[in-house]
Structures are given as C-alpha cells and as structure tokens.
Simulated scan of single mutants.
Amino acid sequence: MLWQLAGHLYPPGAARALEREWFRPPRGTGPDHAGRELLAQARMDWALVTGQGASRRVRVYRWGSSGPAVLLAHGWGGHAAQWQPLVAPLLAAGMRVVAFDALSHGASDAGARGADQTSVVEMSRALLATAWHAGPIHAVVSHSLGSAALALAIREGLHLQAAVMIAPPADMHRAAAALAWRLGIGPAILARMQRSSERWLGMPWSALNVPALGRIRPVPPTLVVHDRQDHEVCWENGAAIVGAWPGAKLMTTEGLGHRRVLRDAGVIASTVDFLGSMAALPRHARTSGVAALHA
C-alpha cells in the first residue's frame, strides 16, 4: 500500500526507492564451520576490477595446482564458501578450483555505489577479473544471479569449454517486473527505474536477457540444473535458457529448492561428470571425484 501511495504522490521518489531496493544484495548468514575451513585451506589473493572510479579488489580463492581450472560464481547475496560441497569432488576429479566473492559480497571491496549496492554487471566484471587473474579458465559453475553474470561475461568475450548453471534466472526485466507487481508498483515507475539504472549500468536492460545470448553469440556446452520447487527462480527460467542455447542440456531435480540444490550429491556428481567429459579427463578420474562425495 505504501509503494502504491508513493507511486501516485511522488513517482520520481518511488522509482529511486525501487532502484535502491532492487540493487541491494541481501545480508544473509556468513560461512558455516565447513565453509570457513574450506576458505582457510585456499590460497588467497586479489583480482582488480577497473572502471567506474577507483580500482576495487575482488577476493580470490584457489585450490589445487594442476588440471583444467573450474571457476565457481556464487549468486546474489552469496559467497565463495557456499561451494564447499563441490570443491573436493572437483579436485579429486583432477581439476583445480577457483572461487571469488563478488563486489559488495564476502571479503571483497564495496562496489562503485557503496557496500549496500551492486548489480549483475559488477558481478560479471568481478567474474571476468577473476578469470583473467587465475586463468586460463576451462569452465564456470554458477548459481542463481551468478549465471546471469556468467552470460554477460560470455557476451564480453569470456571463452569456455563448458558451463554449468544452477537455478539461473533468464530475464532481469521479467524478474524486476515480478517484484514491482508484488509491491503494487505500476509499469511507469518500473520503466523510470530501469531508465535511471541504465545510465550507470552502462547498458540497456535488454542486454540482461540470458536466452537471447544464445541466439547472437557462440556459447559453450552448458548443463542447466533447475529444481521444480524453486520458489525464488522458477524452473521455467532454466528451461528457457536450454531452449535458446544450442546444445544445452537440462537436468531437472525435485524438492531441492533454490539453495539445497548446491549440496545435493546427485547434482554434484552430474556436475563433476559433465565437466570431466568436456575436459576429456579419464573416466576413472571423474568417478573418483564422485566417490569423494561418500568418503
């Protein structure tokens, strides 16, 4: 009701408030004990994101010293430690692993608009900076908004042999429209907010459509994993990406939701096996990675 009233009485203020809300990452809980132990075992350094003012540091974590490199990209409000269940199986399968905290997330610097604001564009720039710093990168595994950041990075020229997208959103405009509808905000306020944000994002919102990328650029072989009961990013998003990206495969899960999917043994095994097949690793190495889940 307050949003509706604000939209009627002062549209510019309502649009600015919506913009702040949309670009504010949630402040969830930090790493659990297992996640802290994982980060303590990593080799840590920094990658630099340039542009939009002073350079900003992105915290980079690395495990392993040989094999094709797999980069892990967390989602909105996430952090590198959320990948704890996947790191050991990837290492056991003969890969080295790189992860990072996006700007305004985890141990990285604040983004250009401050610690409580960032965007998928900044997440993509952090991903690209990490890939350049720790590369060459063989594949990326991404979760949620990290998948949209990955798509932007591919649009900007990141070359990969494989990608795994877990619970990816397809279209930022559609997602913002859904939020506006839930808040009772009309299309005119949403359009005003998007026009304002395009000025500092440096690109139109149409560039944030993940399925469209597969129609205009070469994309790597991609496995999309999405749960039917994902109430944050509905399953149809992943299906739309698979329908538009040539050669992409869809793995549908049941009952794992948006986050538990990252810890599921079947999802981890399928991810490791898919990346191993794209890297032409011996089958025994890939199965040893899967077996590590149960060690």
Rank of each mutant, 00 (worst) to 15 (best):
A47S: 05
A107L: 13
L127D: 08
P85Q: 06
D109T: 12
S65D: 15
V97R: 07
H133L: 00
L128V: 11
A134M: 14
Q84G: 00
V58Q: 09
T118K: 04
P26G: 10
A40Q: 08
W83T: 10
P11K: 15
H8K: 03
D101C: 02
V60R: 06
A81R: 04
A139S: 15
A115Q: 14
L152R: 08
G78N: 11
A110Q: 14
H143I: 13
A93K: 02
L90V: 09
H8A: 02
A81Y: 07
E19V: 01
P68M: 02
L86A: 13
F23V: 07
A17Q: 13
T29E: 15
H133A: 12
G94F: 06
A69I: 05
G64I: 05
E122T: 04
T50V: 08
V49F: 13
L127A: 07
G64S: 08
E21A: 09
V120A: 14
A40S: 14
P31E: 10
V87Y: 03
G51V: 08
A129R: 06
P68D: 04
V87M: 02
T50G: 07
Q82R: 13
R96C: 05
R113G: 01
W76M: 08
V121P: 01
H133W: 04
G13R: 13
A47G: 02
P12V: 14
V140N: 02
L86Y: 06
A47Y: 02
L48H: 06
